[in-house]
Write a protein that binds this DNA or RNA. Structure first.
Length: 645
DNA sequence: ATAGGGTTAG
């Protein structure tokens, strides 16, 4: 055991010896504390600043925080010492009352009072709280003044003060200032300087480094974050968690998973937060095997699967195509909160299980959990995926009239999708016109998609124009419009759209699919030939095409968005859609009968959808495809979406 | 005294 472990275990020990005031140490509740307080008032012990400070500390503890009481005790102190000031400032800083009474701001006012009063000077314990109060209230100017004072008092290089400083700058959005200070500290390191640190600690400055890495993560500069991370001589579990959640929250899902894998090769063990951080990345990639492994890891290592970790697991199973497992996890959570309910309802919704989603919604209300706005997004999207127009309208009206939040863009989006897909194009358009908030591109895209689905060229044309104005460099509108023209064989208009795309330098997003085999995620781009087994994949694709021809399938090339006259070549571009490459690879890499799970970044095209139905029949495989929007369970020639998607 | 986490329309 090294020094650090000894120090940490001492700090973690539940009975911190406060032998001076055993009465307070023994207190369990605020009520008991009141009695001790009364006793101290009677005996005059209250005039001892140490005793008063202990009382202050007790009512500031998260377990029984009573800031009002703390405030009163503090105000009644005749000679508060530095510890008293620090305790009350810290209690106010940590307060959640940031909107109502703004207690973190009160902490800053108290700090200035401490300075003007001048009887006691701030010490190195004062600044972390003060800086955190600045960070929480976004007060950069005050933060800089505090920085000046910290420098003046000689605490700038204190490990705790330094990390609080970086955090303050980062949280106030002053990245260049954070960087400036970081550079200054880095120069110190390079000159062999060290931060002033607690003598009992041997670890060095992990926290400061962690805060720095987190700073880069928060502005989305993962390259800088990673560079710093790689330079660290020691990393704690938090260093890893910051990188993993940083990648995951900024959309670098593969990188998050890779980090998680690297972590396991070192000596730092994943903890609860690690699992909660990596799960969203696993969900997005659809890596079911890895997700199962995380679940097992939690169970084996006695990591409690509470409402938060449970929500992440439910979402993971749902997004990885295993909705039954998601339901199982849900049933084992003792106290599901509104996020847990969102996860299961949203999961059922993307699987097209609208009835179940609505049942869960009723259960939730029955159990007295107030549904959040996100829950209603799940409910509306369930209605939309199943074409439950009336139910959807009722829920939407319920939100408008009964619930105490205003519908958000997402709710409107669901409604446009619901109405549009049901063919109520006119109503959907009017719905958008009457929205009290400005519709975004997603709303218009939902309507455009409906126009495409129902072949409404006139409205499609109009909506596409609006979209091209709103987001001229987004390929979505161009591709959809071109598909609308192509479906009605208006090749001239198709050519016009393509020309426009070229002019605007807009390219169609490349299709990309993933398949996980034996815990390894394989990624395929459209027309991908980079895989080590590309040759075999190619032959398999040929074989599939041949098998499909034998059962009389004629590819639908009408939507091929390429300037190709040769019909055969058009057909072959369809074979090379990324999901088909992934399926072909799945077929040659797994034993007969194994279900295949594919994740795709875009929507599945019409032709792939009908082809996969056939493939599932010809090869007797269950094929589960998660596209951009929902799940398709292909089995024995049909799909769970009943071709309504 | 300082650092990390879950759900969200197409």
């Amino acid at each position: 055991m090294n020094l650090t472990t000894i120090y940490n275990s001492a700090a973690a020990s539940p009975t911190h010896p406060s032998s001076l005031f055993p009465q307070i140490t023994r207190c369990k509740t605020m009520k008991q504390l009141h009695q001790v307080h009364a006793l101290f008032l009677k005996t005059g012990q209250i005039n001892d600043p140490l005793a008063a400070a202990e009382i202050l500390k007790f009512c500031s503890l998260p377990a029984h925080r009573d800031i009002e009481y703390a405030r009163k005790v503090f105000r009644q102190m005749s000679e508060p010492n530095c510890f008293s000031w620090n305790t009350i400032i810290r209690a106010l800083t940590e307060s959640d009352e940031i909107n109502e009474t703004n207690e973190p701001l009160e902490a800053l006012l108290l700090f200035t009072e401490m300075l003007t009063d001048g009887t006691v000077l701030p010490n190195q314990f004062t600044f972390p709280s003060v800086l955190k109060a600045c960070a929480r209230t976004g007060k950069l100017l005050e933060g800089e003044q505090a920085h000046g004072l910290a420098l003046k008092f000689g605490f700038e290089k204190d490990e705790f003060v330094a990390s609080s400083l970086v955090r303050m700058y980062v949280m106030c959005g002053a990245m260049e200032k954070a960087q400036f200070f970081i550079n200054k500290m880095m120069a110190e390191f390079e000159n062999g300087g060290k931060l002033v640190k607690d003598k009992r600690r041997t670890e060095g400055n992990i926290v400061l480094w962690n805060v720095m890495v987190d700073g880069y993560v928060r502005v989305g500069d993962l390259t800088a974050a990673r560079e710093l991370f790689d330079k660290m001589s020691q990393r704690s579990v938090i260093s890893w968690n910051v990188m993993i959640s940083g990648y995951a929250q900024n959309g670098y899902f593969m990188e998050a998973i890779e980090m998680f894998r690297l972590m396991q090769m070192g000596e730092v063990r994943p903890n609860y937060v690690t699992l909660v951080s990596v799960l969203p990345a696993i969900s997005r990639i659809g890596a079911l095997e890895l997700g199962k492994w995380v679940h097992l890891y939690a169970e084996r290592n006695e990591i409690v699967i509470d409402d938060a970790l449970g929500s992440a697991l439910i979402d993971m199973y749902a997004k990885c195509g295993s909705i039954e497992k998601a339901v199982q996890v849900f049933n084992r959570i003792s106290k599901p909160n509104t996020i847990t309910w969102s996860a299961i309802i949203g999961g059922l919704a993307v699987h097209g299980r609208a009835k179940d989603a609505l049942d869960y919604f009723s259960r939730m209300e029955h159990e007295g959990v107030t549904p959040s706005d996100v829950v209603y997004i799940g409910v509306l999207s369930a209605c939309s995926h199943a074409g439950l127009v009336e139910e959807g309208r009722l829920f939407f009206n319920h939100i408008v009239n009964e619930v105490d939040f205003e519908p958000r863009l997402e709710h409107y989006g669901c409604m446009v999708d619901l109405l549009g897909r049901a063919g109520l194009l006119k109503e959907a358009e009017e719905f958008i016109m009457n929205m009290p908030i400005k519709p975004d591109d997603v709303i218009w895209k939902a309507l455009l998609g409906a126009c495409k689905m129902h072949g409404n060229i006139e409205m499609g044309d109009r909506v596409a124009r609006i979209l091209m104005n709103m987001a001229p460099h987004d390929s979505g509108a161009y591709v959809a419009l071109s598909n609308i023209y192509a479906a009605s064989r208006d090749w001239e208009s198709v050519a016009r759209v393509r020309l426009k795309m070229k002019e605007m330098d807009v390219r169609k997003d490349p299709g990309c699919s993933w398949i996980e085999l034996d815990g390894v995620v394989h990624q395929f781009l459209v027309e991908d030939e980079s895989h080590p087994r590309a040759k075999e994949i190619h032959s398999m694709l040929q074989e599939i095409a041949e098998q499909m021809r034998l059962v009389g399938y004629k590819p639908d090339t009408s939507r091929v968005l390429l300037n190709i006259d040769d019909e055969e070549e058009k057909e072959s571009t369809l074979y090379y859609h990324s999901e088909r490459i992934a399926i072909a690879y799945g077929l040659i890499s797994t034993s007969p009968g194994t279900p295949l799970r594919i994740v795709k970044n875009l929507r599945v095209c019409e032709d792939c959808h009908s082809s996969i139905k056939l493939i599932s029949k010809i090869y007797t495989r269950e094929i589960i495809v998660r596209d951009r929007k929902r799940f398709h369970h292909f089995e024995n020639g049909s799909c769970s979406c009943r071709d309504y998607w």
